[in-house]
Each structure stands twice: as structure tokens, then as C-alpha cells.
Design a protein around this nucleic acid. Structure first.
Length: 658
RNA sequence: GCCGUUGUGGCUUAGCGGUAUAGCGGCUGAUUCGUAAUCAGCAGGCCGGGGGUUCAAGUCCCCCCAACGGCUCCA
């Protein structure tokens, strides 16, 4: 049986506390315990945990051994024993806590040390001046093993880690015989190993210098062994692509996860944003609105909503008001809904906003390229429905809508996996709806079911894009919200004249726009890994046609051709060889490349290299007229938004962004 | 946030205690070319930031920042 306690040891110049107020579980104390101070002392912040109750003597002994050991290392003989409940989420009963703390203090005193103990169950103010040397801050997860097993195994610093806030603490395991082995020391004591590669002739090579390009499996094995890590230690492909294609980049001058978008990236974003808004408005009957990006943290309604939404916010001080940046458009739209006069005749009532931006202060380690950002652009649509029946009907319609939107963007059913999540109660009453959803896509989906509802919704789905490194990220999602109509006091008048609460749907038809770009780039990278020629959808390609003159004498005809092409066409007027210009058109993934030379000037026909029909090392070329090329592109991008070139038409005029 | 890896001109990178490498890109000149890299020359560096060790630090140590991977979480 294992017994745990949490302890944080701090070696300080001084520690000083003062009691402020009793809690319900406060121990009775004499006046001299109401404040205390020790110089050059080790302070032991301790949380006695539930599982310590079964063997409080063992816990005391283990803690004493640990403290004495640390005292020796830091050359001190003074200890402040300080109850600190925040180290644990599973505290022991108060009486056990008090007796363990008293026991620790008494045992240390018996050994002739100077000991003070801060009282249990009081609100206390304290000041501590941490010395800051390597041993001055140690978090101990004491683990007494009654069966006296070895001290090996995994130690967890658990909740202690959160407290340390950047300090370099180490986890220590303590077996009953008192041996202390810190993970850091253990790691150091392990003999270093070196890796080499031997070639067939028996010669030894350094791993780094030996070329493994033709030994893929060995390369993988070496990576695995050397880095002791299954993961590829390289950025995901879309990060390299977003830079190389001059779409987006990190902005060191901002917070992490806030990107800069170059002209080509802005063009793509703009097209995607317009597409989602236009579909939602024109085909789906949503009304586009715009709402503020920051809100008052102390607004009573918003405050409650913040507590229910599992996201971290950016917060900003604005004079005396404490504001936070929105993480979706819910706030603004619900506040708007609250002030509206709504009849059942207006329903289902849909509003949408392309949130540029939504902010979520994700944890540092969660941010990656365009997959996970702190500032992102997301269409957020809310639908007010008369009742749950209408909500379910809408839910299914929006499910189909989301599939279609992603499909047109260039991410189809094969590219993502579906998750459907709901409460048990909802499922029991609505099995057909769930079944219908799965039938619609005709492939297995992930189901998550909750016993009780702890979010604001009873049913949701998301489409998860699965990328090159087998990571999944949510794109489209719809949720049935059964809480916020009440929280925001949103009402409508029904046909019977009654004032009623609507049921609310949250929907992001495409998911974050940046994440769609990430999906398209990752998808391209997957194709490329399979030996395919990579492309972007023609409607999203920053350049749709590039015209390349063979030499200066073809300038006039080539320029005429370029101006006769109706789409995003640019013109490579740089003094480079033909081969080089063609190569660059290829690295930019341009769908149509037109080379103009004597032959074209003579016949008036164009030789067009069509990327989508090309094979590796086998460019597909076709003769066509300007009109035929225009027709072809027109058909390909029909129904999708269009914008002109984002950069100068003449290549010589273009600056490099990356 | 925690753990691990990485950080050298705009980009990719060599150097791993002793005067900062090279290629691409940029600029200048020559070349006017038929489908994935024409040739030559020139400019460009507080070696991520701060502190320390040393006669001497991209190089060794500590702290910070960022990117990447893992945990976790989501659009």
C-alpha cells in the first residue's frame, strides 16, 4: 500500500508568517504561535493527504528523514513546518493533518534542531526569501511503500509542479528505509552511451556523419534509439510550407500563436472567409453581424459564462475596468439576441460572424504553426430554435452543411474523422438522430457519452482533421446548447402568445480558417509523401496562371496573352533562364504555366503545363487557346469567391517576404 | 504550464575553447536562353537575449525567450 504526502522545501534567508483569520478547522493556539520568523531556515510546506491517514507514523518518519537529509545538503539546522493545503487536491482529515505536522515538528526537535511550526487551519500571511541556489527549492512527493519495494519507478510531482512556477525542482522518492534518490541524480549516475554506425566493411561512423538516406529503416531505428523517442523531431510539414509558400509566419514581436500573414496568405484567408460567410448567408439564411472583441470581466452574465467555458482568456486592463478578449462570438451575439424582439415566425434565427480574431490563451506547449493558435479566425454561427425538436432538425441540417462546406474548401470526408458526443439521457431519447448521422457519412465515427452534463451542451459533433504526424484537430463543429438562453435571458414569443426560451445551436461551419489552411497544407504534404504532385485548389491558388516569355523578343506577345487571361495571372519578366523560371513556377505550385516563344507567337496557341495532370518528372502539357484556358479555369472555380492578384503582376517588382 | 530537443547573415547550414564556413537569395556585370537551378564579381554576422567561468567563449556553466516533440486541451 502506498502512502503519499506532498512537500515543498524552500531554503530561505528568512521565513516569516502572521495569522490573519481562523477557518472552521483551525487548531487552538497560544499567542506565541500567532506569528513566527526563522532566519537561514528550511521551510517545509506540507499537505497531508487522504491516503496518509492509514499510516500516519510512517508518513511522519518518512517526512522527517527527508527534511533531515535536505538540511544536511543545504547546511542548515532550522526548520519551519508550514501546513500548505494547496499542494494537494485530496487532503486528509484535519485531525490527522494536525497530528502528522505536530509529529514531524516534535521528531525534528528531539534531534536537537530549531523547529517552528505554523498553525494549522488559519489564514496566514507569509514572506519568504528564497536563496535560489540549485537545492533551495525541492518538491518532494513522498511515497512510503510498506512492502519496502525498491525506490525505482515513476515519481510524480503532481500538483506540486503547478506551484513551482519555473523553479527547478526535482522529484524525490523515499522508500521506508529512508533512501533518497532524486530523479536528477539518478539520471546523472547513469553511464552515458554513444551511438555509432558500422558499415558493411566494418568501419565505425558517427551517427551524425553517416549518410542514411538510402537506409530509411535504419535511419528510423537510429532516431528512435538516439533520441529515445518515437516522435520525429522535426516541425510538422505545414509549418515549413506556410513559410516557403509565403503564406504565414511566426511574429516574434507578438505573443506566441499570433501570426503574420503575407499577401498570399491574406488572399487565401480572405477567400476562405468570404466563402464560408457567403455560403452561410446566401444558402443557409444566416445574418452576418459584427460584435466587439473585448468584454468586461465583471459583467454578471459574462462572468458566469466564462466559468462554464473551458478556455483561458487574454485579459487586459483598461483604465479601471478589467476586460478579456473574446474566445468566440457567443458573447456579442447572445447579448444582441437578449435585446432583440423575436417571434416564432423569425425562427430558426441564425446569426454569423467571422471572428477576426478569437483569442484563447492556450498553454505554451500546445501551440503549433497554423494548427493551434492563440489568435485565430473562426466563423461562429448561432441558431435560435423554438424547441428541442427544431434544434435537432437544425442540428442535422448543419451537420450536412458542414460536410459540404469543408468539401468545397478542399477537405473531404476521407480527410477527417468524426466525433459525436452527448449525454446519456440525450442519447436514450434520440438514438435515431445519432444513427442517421453515422449513416449519412457511411463510415465509423468516434462516440463519446457523458453520464451527466457538465458542459452547456447535450449534443455536439466535430470533424477532426488527421495530419501527417497522426494528430487530430477539430474543424467544423455544432453543439446543442441548453443553458445560455437562460443565462443571457434570451426569449421569443410563441404562436400561443407565451414568452419562451429558445434552444440555441452553436456552429462553426468550417472551423478556424487558419486550421483549414493547415489542413490543406498537411493534405498536400501527405500526397507529396506518396509521390504525388502537390497542389492547392485552383480557387485558392495565389497565382492561377503564370506567363513566361522565352526571351525578351517575345515580350509583346506574351504580355498580350497575360492581359487576355481573366484570372490571377502574373508575368515572369525577370532576367533568368527559362529553366529557372519554370522551376520556380513549379515550387510555387502554380496550376497553369504558359511558356511563350516563337512557336506560340506564330500559331497564336498556348502551350500550357497543367499541374493537376502532371506526374513527377512528367509535366503534362496541352495546346490551347486563351479562350479555352479561360473557360477551363472559369469552370473550375465556379461558385467560389474570387479576388485579384495579391502581389505585383510583374515578378521583377516583387519583394521577397521569406 | 511541466519534461525533453533545438536556436550561427533574409533562408539552409559548417565550425563545438584560439582571426566566423559555404550554398541559395540580394546587388553589379556578362549571357537572350524552349519547360525544375547560366557564369563571374560584390555586399551582407553583437553566432536567439542576459549573466558567469577563462588569457581567450557560437563553442563550457546558469537564467530568460522562441520553435519543435511529449503530457494536456481544443476551432
Amino acid at each position: 500500500m502506498l502512502i503519499f504526502m506532498q512537500m515543498l522545501l524552500i531554503h530561505s534567508d528568512y521565513i516569516e508568517y502572521e495569522t490573519k483569520k481562523k477557518t472552521k478547522i483551525a487548531e487552538e493556539i497560544s499567542d506565541d504561535m500567532k506569528s513566527g520568523r526563522l532566519e537561514e531556515a528550511l521551510t517545509a510546506f506540507i499537505a497531508v493527504e487522504k491516503c496518509d491517514e492509514a499510516n500516519s507514523d510512517g508518513t511522519v518518519a518518512a517526512a522527517v528523514a527527508q527534511i533531515k537529509n535536505t538540511l544536511e545538503q543545504v547546511k542548515s539546522d532550522k526548520v519551519m513546518v508550514y501546513p500548505y493545503a494547496h499542494l494537494s487536491s485530496s487532503l486528509s482529515a484535519p485531525d490527522v493533518g494536525v497530528s502528522v505536522l505536530k509529529g514531524i515538528a516534535a521528531a525534528l526537535e528531539e534531534d536537537g534542531l530549531t523547529v517552528k511550526r505554523a498553525p494549522f487551519g488559519w489564514y496566514k500571511a507569509f514572506q519568504i526569501s528564497c536563496k535560489g541556489h540549485p537545492l533551495s527549492e525541492l518538491s518532494k512527493h513522498i511515497c512510503v511503500d510498506e512492502a519496502a519495494e525498491s525506490a525505482s519507478g515513476v515519481g510524480g510531482s503532481g500538483s506540486v509542479a503547478a506551484l513551482k512556477d519555473g523553479a527547478c525542482g526535482s522529484t524525490v522518492q523515499l522508500s521506508e528505509d529512508g533512501d533518497v534518490v532524486s530523479e536528477a541524480l539518478k539520471a546523472e549516475s547513469v553511464a552515458k552511451s554513444y551511438f555509432k554506425i558500422m558499415d558493411p566493411s566494418g568501419v565505425m561512423h558517427d551517427v551524425d556523419s553517416f549518410d542514411l538516406k538510402n537506409n530509411e529503416k535504419l535511419q528510423k531505428f537510429v532516431n528512435y534509439e538516439v533520441s529515445k523517442n518515437r516522435a520525429v523531431n522535426a516541425p510538422p510539414p505545414h509549418v515549413e510550407l506556410m513559410k516557403r509558400l509565403e503564406l504565414a509566419d511566426y511574429e516574434p514581436g507578438s505573443d506566441s500563436g499570433n501570426m503574420r500573414y503575407y499577401p498570399k496568405g491574406r488572399l487565401m484567408k480572405s477567400l476562405l472567409e468570404n466563402y464560408v460567410i457567403e455560403r452561410s448567408v446566401t444558402d443557409f439564411g444566416a445574418m452576418e453581424v459584427e460584435t466587439p472583441i473585448m468584454y468586461d470581466m465583471n459583467h454578471p452574465t459574462l462572468k458566469k459564462y466564462l466559468d462554464r467555458f473551458p478556455a483561458r482568456q487574454y485579459s487586459i486592463e483598461s483604465d479601471k475596468r478589467h476586460m478579456f478578449l473574446r474566445f468566440a462570438a457567443c458573447f456579442g451575439q447572445f447579448l444582441m439576441n437578449h435585446d432583440m424582439t423575436i417571434s416564432y415566425r423569425n425562427m430558426p434565427l441564425k446569426m454569423i460572424e467571422m471572428t477576426r480574431y478569437s483569442f484563447r490563451k492556450e498553454q505554451r506547449g500546445e501551440l503549433v504553426g497554423l494548427r493551434r493558435l492563440r489568435a485565430f479566425t473562426m466563423p461562429d454561427m448561432h441558431t435560435l430554435c423554438r424547441d428541442m425538436d427544431e434544434a435537432k432538425e437544425q442540428f442535422f441540417e448543419q451537420y450536412e452543411f458542414c460536410i459540404d462546406v469543408l468539401n468545397n474548401i478542399g477537405i473531404d470526408l476521407d480527410d477527417f474523422e468524426i466525433a459525436i458526443r452527448f449525454t446519456k439521457d440525450f442519447y436514450n431519447e434520440n438514438k435515431e438522430l445519432i444513427e442517421k448521422m453515422v449513416q449519412k457519412v457511411n463510415k465509423p465515427v468516434l462516440i463519446e457519452m457523458w453520464d451527466t452534463r457538465f458542459f452547456y451542451f447535450v449534443l455536439k459533433f466535430e470533424f477532426n482533421f488527421v495530419d501527417t504526424s497522426d494528430k487530430a484537430s477539430a474543424l467544423s463543429t455544432v453543439q446543442i446548447d441548453v443553458e445560455n438562453a437562460e443565462r443571457y435571458d434570451i426569449t421569443y414569443t410563441d404562436s400561443d402568445g407565451e414568452i419562451k426560451r429558445p434552444t440555441v445551436l452553436h456552429c462553426s461551419p468550417s472551423g478556424a480558417i487558419e486550421r483549414c489552411i493547415y489542413g490543406l497544407l498537411e493534405k498536400a504534404a501527405m500526397g507529396s509523401a506518396k509521390g504525388e504532385i502537390t497542389t492547392l485548389p485552383v480557387w485558392l491558388s495565389p497565382t492561377q496562371v503564370r506567363v513566361i516569355p522565352v526571351s525578351e523578343k517575345h515580350t509583346e506577345f506574351a504580355e498580350n496573352v497575360a492581359s487576355a487571361i481573366k484570372y490571377r495571372v502574373d508575368y515572369d519578366d525577370r532576367e533568368l533562364t527559362l529553366g529557372k523560371k519554370v522551376r520556380e513556377a513549379g515550387t510555387e505550385w502554380i496550376p497553369y504555366t504558359v511558356v511563350i516563344g516563337d512557336k506560340e507567337a506564330e500559331t497564336g496557341k498556348l502551350t500550357v503545363t497543367i499541374r493537376a495532370e502532371s506526374q513527377p518528372n512528367k509535366p503534362f502539357q496541352q495546346e490551347m487557346t486563351v479562350e479555352e484556358l479561360n473557360d477551363r479555369i472559369g469552370k473550375e472555380i465556379a461558385g467560389m469567391p474570387y479576388r485579384g492578384l495579391a502581389l505585383p503582376k510583374y515578378m521583377s517588382k516583387r519583394a521577397k517576404f521569406v
